[in-house]
Amino acid sequence: MVDLKINGLHVSMPEGSTLLEAARFLGFPIPTLCHMDGLEPYGACRLCVVEIGREPKARLVTACTYPVQEGLEVRTASSRVLRARVMILELLLASCPQSRTIQDLASAHNVRQQRFRQEHEDCILCGRCVRMCKEQMMAGAIGFRGRGENRSIGTPFDLRSEQCRLCGGCIYVCPACQLRCTYNEPEKAICGGCANLSPPCIEKEPFDDMMCYMSPCVACEIPKE
């Protein structure tokens, strides 16, 4: 067992657990986005930052990936953490404002506006779908491609992967909803969630009433005609 202090409270956690688990154990809320129980921690979104150590050596680390350490002092809501969190939320809002997950997170932290150039990205590269596909579905059909600006998630060569069983797991875990509905491009289809489960929006008039079980399927790209 490892003893550490979170916001002044002692806690002992089994070796190898993360700060996020420790904080959750004590009931301190830490917002997360790319983290998902059951998936390998990835540390992509940085939303879960916490401050560790003592001034002047205090620093910000991602709680979802940082392992507990003997005698560590962790602050989950210091002003520095809050500032960083707001900034990250603003950046997320700037890139993907249509995501309900991000909107909810932002409003929960009282972020109503962001100061950056507004973009409408489909994907925040959190890698949830990639991990889901690989770790839980044992398929590994989608992955990261390219780097930097050109980084994207998808199948190799943008072709329907033989590994993909159209389980729809990637869509299910997506916080930005970008992978929805590749139904109209079957040759590229990643999940075809709607294709194999035939959600109501296909049978009825498209967008008639948004009764999709994957609600809200605002990014649903089935052409109207």
Binding site: K134, G140, G143, R145, R147, T155, P156, F157, S161, Q163
Partner: peptide, 13 residues
């Protein structure tokens, strides 16, 4: 290895 990983490496560099 999965094609996805190989492709990821090939496009990364």
């Amino acid at each position: 290895q999965s094609l996805t990983d190989v492709y990821g490496v090939a496009t990364f560099y």
